[in-house]
Nucleic acid binder design. Structure first.
Lengths: 217, 217
DNA sequence: GTCTATAACGAGATAGAC
DNA sequence: GTCTATCTCGTTATAGAC
């Protein structure tokens, strides 16, 4: 992340972006003040305005630059010739789980939904650059498998919703229950992930997996 | 909605709650000011404080009273002796779609996720009173069907996520794309709903539905 | 129960020294 | 590039008349 030439400049900007993204995700757009952000970075509020002309611009940068590169691995999975069609879907779903549960990008959808009426430009960028491209990649993998005769002729549009929807919702549940003492136990994501993948593959191939054979986590 | 006895008292409170709920859902908690709300109701800002002691209390009332009664129809479906197990799941899913797409309650999850760090009491109330009870009802229906031999021994916890997740996510997409000129076409909820229900029933019964036989919407 | 008026505070943003 | 100091405005909330 550090600029190789100077090792200094551009560093602060990236640091601010990372901290701001996390703050926006946690407290929402209106719930995050420039003073809060400055405090997190360790500088004064006025200094933030040296790096970004306004809160609005800072937010737009967080979102637009936040999902850059998040689809790279998914594209690699789509183009990997060594994967069978079911293995490709499995790998794609594991990647989607990884991005949504371990990076900030996957947590952005609820935030964007909140600011969409006031900052439509960011909603458009997020939908076109992240959601729609996810859809394109997933339906592509599904339809290729169908064309090759490896998958049943399922409704690819509906199935992509069945793939992404539960992941996003579970991450949202995690945030809702994060303050609970028993929060972790309420949403056993890793166990559900295995069943989720099995079910999607079953819909695609018609094969019935061994239902008792679920990861214990 | 009008109080039958007086036609006056208690009415304002309900009116404020309804308008405030909608505003909170659209603009978030911090994004909604008491002045905005007063304007929507048609009274002055100070008059709001006659009905609710603070913005915090107003918000808590919106959420806590918002999901009251939202589970009634789902409980009726669970207890309806005239429904077969597959028809029960179908009816429950249609009800979940209805609540999420046509009432304010279903849109609450992202809002709660935003305020959860600051207002944990409301997160707890929403999770216990709405999400967890949905889960209880759904897993109950699924496990009853399994016990009766009508359903395959699926992972009920994972399947309930496959039922609810896509619905919540699609509603969130709707809000993200609401400002787009082509927003409606991007998320064809009604068409996807039919495929979604078919897929869940396929997972439960093992029966392969006619895939071409999808509602045109 | 609603109003006008105002207090008390925090927000985003700017000016200018260093 | 960061600082102190400040401007201006919007925010929650209260006081007290009607």
């Amino acid at each position: 992340m550090v600029d190789l030439e100077s090792g200094k400049s551009g560093d602060r900007r990236a640091e601010i972006l990372a901290l701001a993204t996390d703050a926006f995700l946690t407290h929402g757009y209106s719930g995050t003040s420039m003073a809060d952000l400055a405090g997190a970075v360790g500088i004064r509020k006025a200094s933030l305005y040296h790096h970004f002309p306004s809160k609005h611009d800072l937010f737009v940068a967080c979102v637009s630059e936040g999902f850059l590169g998040a689809l790279k691995r998914l594209e690699d999975i789509r183009d990997d010739p060594n994967l069978s069609d079911p293995d490709r879907i499995r790998a794609a779903m594991e990647e989607i789980y990884r991005v949504n549960t371990t990076t900030v990008v996957g947590r952005m959808a609820p935030l964007i939904a909140e600011v969409a009426p006031r900052i439509p430009e960011v909603a458009r960028a997020f939908y076109d650059g992240f959601i729609a491209r996810h859809y394109g990649l997933l339906t592509g993998m599904i339809e290729d498998g169908i064309a090759r005769g490896c998958f049943l002729p399922v409704d690819a549009v509906a199935l992509r919703q069945l793939i992404i929807g539960p992941v996003v919702f579970m991450q949202m549940e995690r945030e809702i229950t994060a303050t609970f003492a028993d929060g972790e136990a309420l949403v056993p994501i890793r166990r559900i992930r295995e069943s989720h993948i099995s079910m999607v593959l079953q819909l695609l191939t018609g094969a019935t997996p061994a239902f008792g054979d679920v990861a214990k986590d």
